[in-house]
Amino acid sequence: MLSQPDIAALIITLKLAGTTTLILLLLGTPLAWWLATTRSRARSSIEAVIALPLVLPPTVLGFYLLLAFSPDGPIGVTTAALGLPSMAFSFWGLVLGSAIYSLPFVVQPLQNSFAGLGRMPLEVAATLGAGPLDRFISVVLPLSKMGYLTAAVLGFAHTLGEFGVVLMIGGNIPGETQVLSIAIYDHVEALEYSQAHWLAAGLLLCSFLVLLMVYSANRRFHLMKTI
């Protein structure tokens, strides 16, 4: 069934998707809130930048990240100055790449969910004595449950299926940066179709189940618009 390197790839993939989703939910919340509430003119540009990974070939993103990670690139220079190892071909390099790559899948559902609340619940909470943070925790978060579920699942699933960016910046180091999609590619290259099937079909089923969960939950909560 699954060989030792395949299991390692599975674990790395889950770890990568989990870490990336967690980071994106934390960073995406203030970003999505700002986008949903600001009247700033900068909003459109920021939205366009966030949406770029939706249309850009992943190899383009990976290529520029690789340049940035190089010893002369801005990220490479920074990590060297801080005495940290290079990000290229490392797990944390993959996390950074995945975070940028999956950003729109987390930010957009959150932004739609926040915008859909309208100003009424927040204004009411304010008149009842709730300060800004209190309003966010007691009103916005519980009313945005579906948005968070959608964001988390889409961010996770999208990171699972990542290939191009990983290939460019992660290389293919088994047990370190080799993720499922790359392992499948390797099996196919080596004509090991049965191993490739196990992984590919597993990934397909897993992605389908995850999306099915989101859509049926959405249907239940009548919140299709958050996607």
Binding site: E123, A126, T127, G129, G131
Partner: peptide, 13 residues
């Protein structure tokens, strides 16, 4: 700020 005014509001809807 609103939250320190202590106004009770009953809105239209």
């Amino acid at each position: 700020p609103v939250e320190q005014r202590r106004v009770g509001v009953v809105f239209q809807n």
